[in-house]
């Protein structure tokens, strides 16, 4: 009966004290720090009017920046989905020396300030850098091109995939695989038909998180991107540039456009996941 009660809203709740003040404080702090500022973001473009808003976000430079931010994020998230799954698999299923170190290291992009990642990646991939030097004879330029944006976003997004897939892989019942094997499935069939479907929702979640993070990413990208308008200029940078010109409404319009596209993409992914679960 107590279990039942949990699912119902309770007006006069438990015997623990402090609910009113705690909720009141939390709501006030949340409103001041998060909600009011975000409201300003959403309301500010209103002064442009709808046609003004459309005019801002359809400027060729804005469109190019949005295309780059979302395109590079999609590519980077896809790369991370593949390699992140491999890393998670290796960390969960195999043992090798230094495994714990590698496991801890996966969180480096969470902990390393993005500016540091940015300058380090630029140093590596610049034409005279350790990796850039090797790629240059092959005609591949990474730094100061859209490819550089992808590299930075791969760095930033990796832990999102690994850390969402890893626990699911860990909790996967190995008996199910044994059952598949005992029923005559080859290892490959077991992986494709039994394991992959089980971790697909987590993989999609990790992909979505990496994608969302990549779209908004700024610090690690601006150093390596070169920031050439129409070519390697990302959307967040455009916001900064508009702000420097005191075009607040324009900056907010780009911000709202970014958030809207992200929201729609995440919604689609969410629906995809639900559809997958429904099957």
């Amino acid at each position: 009966m107590r279990v039942f009660a949990r699912f119902l809203p309770r007006r006069a709740p438990s015997v623990l004290p402090g609910f009113g003040p705690a909720l009141g404080f939390a709501l006030a702090y949340l409103s001041i720090i998060v909600l009011m500022p975000l409201a300003a973001l959403v309301l500010r473009p209103a002064e442009l009017g709808f046609s003004g808003f459309v005019a801002v976000v359809t400027q060729p430079r804005v469109l190019a920046a949005l295309r780059l931010s979302f395109g590079a994020s999609l590519i980077a998230a896809a790369i991370n989905a593949v390699f992140g799954m491999i890393v998670a698999w290796v960390l969960v299923r195999y043992s090798f020396p230094g495994k714990r170190l590698v496991d801890a290291l996966v969180d480096l992009p969470f902990a390393l300030p993005t500016a540091v990642a940015g300058v380090a990646l630029t140093a590596l991939y610049a034409p005279n850098g350790w990796i850039g030097r090797l790629l240059q004879p092959l005609g591949i330029e990474v730094a100061f091109t859209p490819l550089g944006v992808v590299v930075a976003l791969v760095f930033i997004g990796l832990p999102f995939v690994v850390r969402t897939v890893q626990p699911v892989l860990q909790d996967l019942d190995r008996e199910v695989e044994e059952a598949a094997a005992s029923l005559g499935a080859s290892r490959w069939q077991t992986i494709v038909r039994v394991i992959l479907p089980a971790i697909l929702p987590a993989l999609l979640t990790g992909f979505a998180l990496a994608l969302a993070r990549g779209v908004g990413e700024y610090g690690s990208v601006i150093f390596i991107a070169g920031n050439m308008p129409l070519v390697s200029e990302i959307a967040p940078l455009l916001i900064v540039i508009k702000l420097e010109q005191y075009d607040y409404a324009g900056a907010a319009a780009v911000g709202v456009a970014m958030l809207s596209i992200s929201f729609v993409m995440l919604l689609i992914l969410n629906l995809l996941q639900r559809w997958h679960r429904g099957h």
Binding site: P37, L38, A40, L41, R44, T114, V215, G216, E217, Y218, G219, P236, L237, I239, V240, L243, Y248, A251, A252, G255, M258, L259
Partner: peptide, 12 residues
């Protein structure tokens, strides 16, 4: 929210 937007909101 993008870090840049996190700053932007306070400028607004």
């Amino acid at each position: 929210v993008s870090p840049v937007i996190s700053g932007l909101v306070y400028v607004l």
